[in-house]
Structures are given as structure tokens and as C-alpha cells.
Design a protein around this nucleic acid. Structure first.
Lengths: 200, 200
DNA sequence: GGTGCCATGTAACGCGTTACATGATTAT
DNA sequence: ATAATCATGTAACGCGTTACATGGCACC
């Protein structure tokens, strides 16, 4: 959704063409290192926006160079954009692949969970180092916004590291507990709402 | 990728059928509240795994009930699974929709950035409250793993809240800076590697 | 006979990616 | 010439979602 509304918002500021939108979007998200958007996605998203009637092809320029298809926002697009601005950003769980790996390693016994944990920690420290280097390369006098982005990424990695420490301390206890397997096949039929199944 | 390898890992433990895998996967990720996997995704992923030769249809049971298609892992599947276990989990940037909203609001002047910031903060506090309530409802004696999951989510939200505080403190300064627009159209042609373009 | 679980799918769509393909302009 | 940027797209795939569709079993 971010790309869709990002483009819509940029077109809402002033009519633009695809290539320009690609550059503007990349600039807004803090450069390619932070979020690389492929041209293909820009153009397919623009087509979808057009099909949905949120933008229209305004004109095609040639100004002594390659063709440029200029898109402009429609009243419907403006309405959707305002909705988006005012609606809260949903906080999505991060579908943690690491946790699945961990649990499967514990459950199957095929791999040492500590090995996975240490690998992850090494990875996070490497990431933290890189993020810090990147942050230090920024000039706060001219790119405060990017500095904030870098700061956010760093804070998340630091949180992950602290969490890994907690996990390590409790790993042995977790291993002792029965692996969360699906509840052992309830008897068939209709348990219904108000029924106390094998009530204690 | 998590679903793909999650299922592969579960089948690697023992042959299973789709419905069972759905239950087992849901259990491993901490229940539907944490990560709801739709049956449709299970079955389509199983088909893809089969097409890739990582699993095979082992048998079809009927045992006086509905049909069950049992899948088993292949040697190729086992090899891929081991690779997955040993490869580091890539740390993905979270494609932050909130940041885009913020930057667009600042750039366009159509919406008050503070309004968006406060809305987001309210949202995060609501989320934190819910996560905390959920955490307290867990019994550490039998679901330590889930407790760790809850803890991780809480730590992330807390980090987001601290970051929002930083952002608020600097918002006025950010607004004063020129909005990061794409670099003002470099002259055409070939700048090449070692050339100092309009060197200072 | 209805409710509800067990069990399996298909079709269409949304979003994103990789890879491929085209062509014009301009500085060297 | 050729390298590099400007500019636009298509095709195929991967992953995930929503919605739809089917049918057996068993309890009450």
C-alpha cells in the first residue's frame, strides 16, 4: 500500500511522469539503500491507479527528449489520499522467520537451537555496525529526516539484540516444555457454545 | 518464505496432511492472533512444494472419515531444509508507511504532521496495552515460548514509541529543511566514474 | 435436520520481483 | 562509437488474500 499511496501523494502535489516519480519516491524513503523500488513496480502501480480512476493521463510531453506520460490526480484520487492521511497506520506483526526456525529446531532436534541463536546475534551485530556507520555518514544539518530513519532502524535492531539475550537465558527452559503441537484432536461432533467439554 | 519452510520443516519431522499442517503451523507461530495462516495458502504452498520436488504425496488415508492426502519430505527437500536452518535470517527493513505519510504531509502541506504523529502515538499505546494484556494472560509454566513472542512484540512497540518522542522533538527542524526531492536534473550525457561534476 | 468440525481445494486478484525489451539524447 | 542517463514498458513468476465450492462425519 505504501507505494500506491506514496505515488498518489506525489502526484497530488503536482502532475508527474513515471521516471520522475521513481526518483521522488526513492528520495522520500531515504534512498535506494533504505528501500529500493523497481521501475517495473512504479509503472504497474501507475496502471492500477489509472484503472481505479485515481489518476489520469494528463498529457504526453516530448520537449526534445524521450516521451513522458504525465499523470494527474483525480477528485476520487484526492479523496482516497485524504482518507489515507487520516487513517492510522496498522501495526503489523513481523512474521518472524527466526522464531519459526527456532521452534522447529527445538521440536525436531535436527539442529542445535543455540547455533541458530548465535548466528542470528552475529547477524544483528553486523547489521547494527552497518547502520551506525551509515548514520554517522549523514549530515544532520541537511538530512535530519534520514537521520531519524537511521535511528529508527538502529533502535529496532537494539531491541532485537536485547530480546535475543532474554531468549538465550530462557532457552533451556523452553526446550523442557512440550512443543506447542496442535491440540490433540478433539472428539468429532458439535461442542457448541455453552458446553463445558470434559469440564474439570 | 516462512510458510514454505515452516511446512517443509513440519513435514520433515513426520509425514502429515494439509489440515494437520495448518494446525501445527498455527501452533508454532503462537496462535491465530499472532499470525493467521489461511487454509488456501497451506494448500497452494503444498502444491508448489510438490512441483519443486521437495515433498511427495505419500498416501491417501480414509480411516472412516474424510480423505487425507499425506505428504512426505524428499531427499531434495531435506537438503533445502538444512540449508535454510543454517542460513542467516535476513533483516528486512520494514518499509515504513508511517514515515512516508509523514514526509508527504510535510512536503505537501495538505495535512498537519503533528496530527499524524499524535494519531500514530495513540495507536501504538493502544497496541502496547493490548500486547501487555495478552502477555499477562499467558502462563509462563506452560507457554514460555509464546511469552517470548509477546515480549518481542512489546519491545518493538516500545522502541517505536521512544522513536516517536525523538521525532516530535525534531519535527520543527525537519520541516525547515528542504524536502528531499530528486536531485535537480543533472545534465544529460556521460558523467562517467572519475569525473568531478561541477567540482566545488 | 442443523450445527460444527474435519478435510480439500479452485479462481481471481493484489502487490512485488526478476528478467527482458526498446529507444532517444548527449558528452566524450 | 559507446557509455550513461532519461524514459517506458511487458511477461512470468512468487507469495499472500478473499471468496467461493464441495463433501463426509457425528452429535444433539
Amino acid at each position: 500500500m505504501s507505494v500506491k499511496f506514496g505515488l498518489l501523494g506525489l502526484i497530488g502535489q503536482k502532475p508527474r511522469h513515471g521516471y520522475e516519480l521513481h526518483a521522488a519516491f526513492t528520495a522520500i524513503v531515504g534512498g535506494e539503500d533504505n528501500w529500493e523500488v523497481k521501475p517495473a513496480q512504479i509503472y504497474t502501480t501507475l496502471n492500477r491507479l489509472k484503472e481505479q480512476g485515481l489518476i489520469i493521463e494528463e498529457s504526453i510531453l516530448q520537449e526534445g527528449g524521450p516521451e513522458k506520460v504525465i499523470y494527474a490526480i483525480t477528485p476520487e484520487g484526492l479523496a482516497e489520499l485524504e482518507d489515507w492521511f487520516l487513517s492510522p497506520v496498522s501495526i503489523e506483526r513481523q512474521k518472524d522467520e527466526f522464531f519459526i526456525k527456532m521452534m522447529l529446531a527445538i521440536a525436531s532436534g535436527q539442529v542445535d537451537p543455540y547455533k541458530i541463536l548465535y548466528a542470528q546475534r552475529g547477524n544483528l551485530y553486523r547489521e547494527l555496525h552497518q547502520l551506525t556507520a551509515n548514520k554517522l555518514s549523514l549530515n544532520p544539518a541537511e538530512s535530519l529526516a534520514y537521520l531519524m530513519l537511521a535511528e529508527q532502524a538502529i533502535m529496532h535492531v537494539e531491541a532485537d539484540l536485547r530480546w535475543l539475550d532474554m531468549l538465550e537465558a530462557r532457552l533451556d527452559d523452553i526446550r523442557k516444555q512440550p512443543i506447542p503441537e496442535p491440540a490433540p484432536k478433539k472428539p468429532r461432533g458439535r461442542p457448541a457454545k455453552g458446553i463445558k467439554e470434559d469440564g474439570q
